[in-house]
């Protein structure tokens, strides 16, 4: 058993706690256009003020304390404290050993390998520390990069919910991807 390899430090990024004083500003900046929120799910995108985001983050911390159904981290580079994105393992249902996972990298920090490095950390945490058997990701069908990304890590498309999303005057499917522990390999991605 190797307990010396850090669960939270990868080759490029670290999983860290929320910094309530600094992070809301960065997240507010990212919410000024819809690019990030629209890639995640059907929740309507909207600009958020730092104070609103701070409240949301405080709520997340409270929920993590009280319910133990979510692990939420902020992703930062090894070399400084700036915020690169967030990731969460959520809707954990312990008796079923299942959860959902979401990962988001800020628009200006994409295509630098941070997402892949963070993903490896989250999957290891999910399977080797939380002992989950299954992870699911929900993605809009128009998020082509997201779909390629999760496939690279071994996720397969299981569900295609037809015409769930109405955006830009068009109907889009919402997809569910699943990854079982037996399909996960540390070498993926």
């Amino acid at each position: 058993m190797d307990i010396t390899t850090s669960l939270y430090t990868g080759k490029l990024v670290r999983l860290t706690r929320i910094e309530l004083e600094k992070d809301p500003e960065t997240l507010a900046e990212w919410s000024k256009d819809a690019s990030l929120m629209r890639m995640l799910d059907e929740t309507p995108a909207r600009p958020l003020a730092s104070e609103q985001i701070k409240k949301r983050l405080e709520k997340i911390e409270k929920e993590m304390d009280e319910k133990h159904e979510m692990f939420y981290f902020h992703i930062r580079p090894l070399e400084d404290e700036r915020l690169l994105g967030w990731g969460k393992i959520y809707w954990i249902l312990w008796p079923s050993q299942i959860a959902n996972i979401e990962l988001a990298i800020g628009p200006s920090e994409q295509r630098k390998g941070y997402g892949s490095d963070a993903s490896r950390l989250f999957l290891r945490l999910a399977f080797d520390e939380l002992n989950l058997n299954r992870l699911a990701v929900r993605l809009p069908a128009y998020n082509i990069r997201g779909i390629e990304f999760v496939k690279k890590f071994g996720f397969s498309e299981e569900v295609r919910r037809r015409e769930v999303i109405l955006r830009d005057g068009r109907r889009w499917d919402s997809l569910v991807f699943g990854l079982l522990r037996s399909e996960w390999s540390v070498n993926h991605g």
Binding site: P95, S96, Q97, I98, N133, R134, A136, E157, E158, V159, R160, R161, R162, V164, V176, G178, L180
Partner: peptide
């Protein structure tokens, strides 16, 4: 619309959840 695999663990067996629409 699809089958989310192994969502349930009951009586020592795993079962799937079907999505319909």
């Amino acid at each position: 619309e699809g089958r989310a695999r192994e969502m349930i663990l009951r009586e020592g067996q795993r079962a799937d959840v079907l999505y319909m629409g």
